[in-house]
Design a protein around this nucleic acid. Structure first.
Length: 115
DNA sequence: AGCCTGACAAGGT
DNA sequence: AACCTTGCCAGGC
């Protein structure tokens, strides 16, 4: 059978694939990644996968909350690194929130690109 | 099986 | 925009 989403590892793989699909200068929401991976409503699983399966080459910093804000506690080292990495790609970040990007898909989908 | 946790989301104030 | 409350659901114990 084709590798379905019936095992934690398979779900993680599908999620990681969608995260890698977000190109530089773009950002996406946890929920949108979940939907694209075939798991609508499982934003929290995306977060869990990022925490557990973090890899050096994974663009984890392009994943934000549905309102465009950074999910880490303000001031934490991860929070600072995420902001720094995003700005390095030309994304404007003000007080922990991405601004100035426009929706690439429909208004309801949390994926944004350069304005 | 049950309970708690969490890099979340949506809706209301 | 900022908060708070509810709903959510896989994972880990």
């Amino acid at each position: 059978m084709f590798p379905d989403l019936d095992t934690p590892a398979a779900r993680a793989a599908a999620i990681l694939k969608e995260i890698r699909a977000v190109s530089a200068g773009h950002v996406a929401g946890y929920g949108e990644i979940a939907r694209r991976a075939g798991m609508p409503g499982r934003a929290r699983l995306v977060a869990q996968v990022l925490r557990k399966y973090g890899a050096p080459d994974l663009p984890w910093y392009r994943i934000l909350r549905s309102d465009g804000s950074i999910a880490f506690p303000a001031g934490s080292s991860s929070y600072r690194e995420q902001g720094q990495r995003l700005r390095a790609e030309g994304v404007r970040v003000v007080k922990g929130r991405v601004v100035g990007l426009k929706a690439t898909a429909s208004v309801d989908e949390q994926i944004w690109g350069p304005a």
